[in-house]
Design a binder for these strands. Sequence first.
DNA 1: AATCTGATATGCT
DNA 2: GCATATCAGATTT
Length: 193
Amino acid sequence: MNPVEKSFFHQDAKTVAQQILGKQLIRKTSGELLSGIIVETEAYYGAEDPASRAYEGKQTKMNRWMWMDAAIVFVYMVHGHWLFNVITGKKGKPEGILIRAVEPREGVETMRDRRGVRQLTRLTSGPGKLTEAFGITKEHVGLDVTSLSSEIVVSEADDEKTFTVLSSHRSGVTRDLSEEMRFYIEGNEFVSR
DNA sequence: AATCTGATATGCT
DNA sequence: GCATATCAGATTT
C-alpha cells in the first residue's frame, strides 16, 4: 500500500477526478482488506454549482465537510444510498469528487456477502453499490484518505496500466454545469450505465 | 421505460 | 409533524 500524496488532492476537483482514475481504493476493516480500482468519478464545485451540496455557499451541519482540507472523506445519503466523496482543492473552498464506480480487486467474497449479489459486475458498478460493498457509511466522514492509519485509503495502483479517459455530463443531475464533469475509463465493464 | 423503495435533510403547515 | 426532494438501484413491464 502506497497512499497518494496529500498535495494530489490540493489540485482542482476536475483535475483530481481525471487523475484519480486507475488508482486504488482501499478499505481496512478488522482483519480484512478490501480494494478496488477507481474507474468512474464526478467533480463537484461549491456555490456556483447547482448540483453541489454546497450550492449557494450555505454551510449546514451535513455539508460543512466540503469546507475542510483536501483528502477528507465526505459521505451523504441520496435515495437511500450512501455516496462516497473526497474533498479537493484549497481548504475553505468547497469542492470535491464523487467516486461513482470501482473495479473489485481484493475481498470480493466479502463484497458479495454485503451486496447479496454474486455477479461480479453488479458488485461495485455504481456510487451506492460501491459504498455498500465496501461498508462505507456516514461514520467514515472526516477520515483522511492519504493517511496510512485511515480505514479508507487512496493508494497508487501497483500495476499501472494505460487507458483512455472519457468524459460526459454528470449522471442523474437535474441542473448540470455546461462543462462535462463525469470521467471514466474507456471500455471498463464496471462503469455505471 | 416505467415504477417502487429508500434514509436523510429541509421546508412547510 | 408531515410532505417533499434527492448526485440510485432493483424489479417489473
